[in-house]
Amino acid sequence: MAMLKDITLGQYYPADSVIHRLDPRVKVVVTLGFIVSLFVISTIPGYLLAALFLWLWIRLSRVPLRFMLRGMKSVFFLLFMTVVFNLFLTPGETLISWGKLVITKEGVRIASLMAIRLVFLILGSSVMTFTTTPTRLTDALESLMRPLTRLHVPVHEIAMMMSIALRFIPILMEETDKIMKAQMARGADFESGNIIKRAKNLIPLLVPLFISAFRRANDLAMAMEARCYHGSEGRTRMKPLVYARRDRAAYLLLLLYLVLSVVIGRDLLHLSSLFFPGGGV
């Protein structure tokens, strides 16, 4: 179905690029670093720097920008609401007003700031998911969270659950598509009617979908047991994660970017406002 195909966010995009080959841990750390930087930066040169970093990050990944923007469609509503709320509900110096609706100077500033941050955040993190297979991603998370095992956090089990859940998304989507088509072949209608009718019309889709999800879960559990899966203890990896030179280079680049973003990205005069919201601005 067209509507299911539009969800490109979080999908893997197969290609051969430097970013695809990077160690998944590096990609997770770079993504986190980039997100943090977006909330540290507050000046225009800072955003230009972030844009430059993002541009490089996307270009090197060789994922077509058009493909990435298609994934943005699904978050457009969220973005739109954020902008509207910030635009109208921020108190401050009046810029334009129609009756009770007031756009303030601060509103414009914060709304555009939020919009830029959100767009950058989504694009930046989607590069990670576009270039990393879910398995590699969970491997990375497991490896990065390893220290938590000392606190008796079941890191391996969490990672395994995550990778299974991720692995099943495309399968369930395909299954949804198939069942939807099968029911449409029997005259089912998923597109018209009011919201209650539509919800009711979903029953012929959801019941078979749940049954098949349980069937698959059961089969998978059996298959894992048949291959003697018993959790993390003594488990080795087929492809252990090892840092290569390009990974160290990437870390270095990230560090450089973070330092720069604090230096030019922070309006040092207003730094105090971060800690004492009453004053400044």
Binding site: I179, A182, A185, V207, P208
Partner: peptide, 16 residues
């Protein structure tokens, strides 16, 4: 779709 009936592969999976 009523005139052209299509029975999918593993059609029993669509019973609900």
């Amino acid at each position: 779709r009523a005139r052209v009936g299509l029975v999918f592969q593993y059609p029993e999976h669509q019973l609900f």
